[in-house]
Design a binder for these strands. Structure first.
Lengths: 109, 109
DNA sequence: TTTATATATTGCAATATTACGATATATTAT
DNA sequence: ATAATATATCGTAATATTGCAATATATAAA
């Protein structure tokens, strides 16, 4: 006892958690994958592809956008969404640093 | 019109989303990082480290365990939790496949 | 200007998550 | 057997997420 629990979370922990949370839904995983398989990444194509109503897709896109994972630009009356690769690269770095800290000989299970 | 939205989610999309969701909370990020920085990965040490009550930590550990990210073994009256590196490696593979599908020349924004 | 198309926002119901006090369980120490 | 320690579970309140119908906005087409 006597140990004070003063530690809160670091900015990096919070930002990483926000990004992973944004990707932590099958519809949003599917959206990201769909965007990458299309040359034209138009919002309406996602609505036609996924089994969700248009407002729900719009909501998921907003969450991905808020987390910085995608960005959108207006293309006439449509909106084109694209991946931000830097965020994905940051996540890969995060997991790789986890793996580099992993020492099997220290594991008790 | 005429396009039926028959597609649901694949098993991989669902599993990946579950794992990312499990990591999508700063406390669970902190837990994973803490486990990797300790040789002895004892649950009670996490309780002393993080600014959360013991039942809350227990609940977060359960979610990480359900997602397969950690596993625990009984060590006397304590429980030792460890990372499952395969799950992290799977996530790195997932993000790398996203990056390999990313073609800047196809992006509209 | 009217109509059609594409997307966003609002409002709302159902469900899930988060956090914790109280309590249960299980092991160890006395 | 009793007490102490470590962890899990239960119950519950507060909040967040998910999904959608209805509606608003904005651009393009007629």
């Amino acid at each position: 006892m006597g140990v004070s629990k003063t530690s809160s979370y670091t900015e990096i922990q919070i930002e990483t958690a926000n990004r992973l949370k944004a990707l932590g839904h099958p519809a949003r995983i599917a959206i990201v994958q769909f965007l990458l398989n299309q040359k034209e990444c138009i919002c309406n194509d996602i609505v036609n592809e996924l089994p969700l109503a248009q407002p729900t897709i719009s909501q998921h896109l907003k969450e991905l956008k808020n987390a910085g994972i995608i960005q959108g630009t207006i293309e006439g009356k449509a909106i084109c969404y694209c991946i931000n690769p830097k965020v994905i690269k940051d996540l890969v770095s995060f997991f790789n640093s986890i793996l580099s800290n992993f020492h099997p000989e220290d594991q008790c299970c």
